[in-house]
């Protein structure tokens, strides 16, 4: 099943052509990695899938982005429900300056998904899904800003899971973490792909090779190659992909 499909997708920042004719199809319940050198447009691409790019002034987008068969750039597409079903994890963990409990309960509260009585159960379930419940269950009232970075990033994932999304976009989710924490987050992603479609942007090729099922390689705003991860890393069909994964530039 294809979850996200793009057709001739172009994005301009003012006059700068940042994404050039991207066409790709992302499989449901898989991890899809987008790799490429910095500035190639990979973050811009995932930020299209939840329309968080809309916040930037002077952005212009042409082409189609279909999620579950509907173009999310249709004028009457409901942004709130889009962002509820397509969650995003950012480069630096960004828990809100609230308690751990309120961080997880934020989404369910704004979407009125549960009464205050059902919230504790939902919070517990979400924290369990990211393996944080054991560590944090006695600290739920404490500020989310005082826990280690890796736990903060997990908390941000739990915060998304609490609103029951289908897709998780991860924009270099481990770039602020040390190698051990990175491995733990990767394990978590592998677990999560049983239930969610995950798109991860990473500049770390080993990470893409370790966790993803499919990989897209981007260069200067173009999607050069998009294929099964083993194929990209063992027998890429484009010369530029080969040069990048063998470390000749980037």
């Amino acid at each position: 099943m294809k979850k996200i499909t793009t057709e001739d997708l172009n994005l301009y920042y003012g006059s700068f052509h940042a994404l050039k004719g991207i066409g790709m199809a992302i499989e449901e319940r898989r991890i899809t990695a987008i790799i490429g050198p910095s500035g190639c447009g990979k973050s811009t691409l995932v930020r299209i899938f939840n329309r968080i790019n809309d916040l930037i002034e002077e952005v212009r987008i042409t082409g189609k982005v279909l999620i579950d068969g509907r173009n999310i750039y249709e004028p009457d597409y409901d942004l709130v429900s889009l962002r509820k079903s397509v969650g995003m994890v950012f480069q630096r963990p960004n828990p809100f300056p609230l308690s751990i409990y309120d961080n997880v309960a934020f989404g369910p509260r704004i979407h009125r998904m549960a009464g205050e009585g059902d919230l504790p159960g939902l919070v517990e379930e979400s924290l369990k899904a990211v393996n944080l419940w054991g560590d944090l269950k006695d600290k739920l009232k404490r500020s989310a800003l005082n826990i280690p970075l890796e736990q903060q990033q997990r908390l941000c994932i739990a915060r998304l899971i609490a609103v029951r999304p289908d897709v998780l976009l991860m924009d270099e989710p481990c770039s602020a973490l040390d190698p051990v924490a990175t491995l733990k987050i990767e394990e978590l992603m592998t677990e999560l792909k049983k239930r969610y479609t995950i798109v991860i942007v990473t500049h770390n090729m080993q990470q893409a090779a370790r966790i993803s099922d499919e990989t897209g390689f981007m260069l200067l705003g173009e999607l050069i190659e998009f294929d099964r991860t083993e194929k990209i890393f063992t027998a890429p069909s484009d010369k530029r992909t080969e040069e990048y994964i063998t470390g000749r530039y980037g």
Partner: peptide
């Protein structure tokens, strides 16, 4: 108020108003 807080709230599907009074004012 750091921009990541605002982005985080909007990315969770908060409306601008919800973002302002639940996150920005608190922060």
């Amino acid at each position: 108020v750091p921009k990541p807080y605002k982005e985080g709230a909007l990315a969770l599907g908060a409306t601008r108003w919800q973002m302002m009074y639940k996150i920005v004012l608190v922060a």
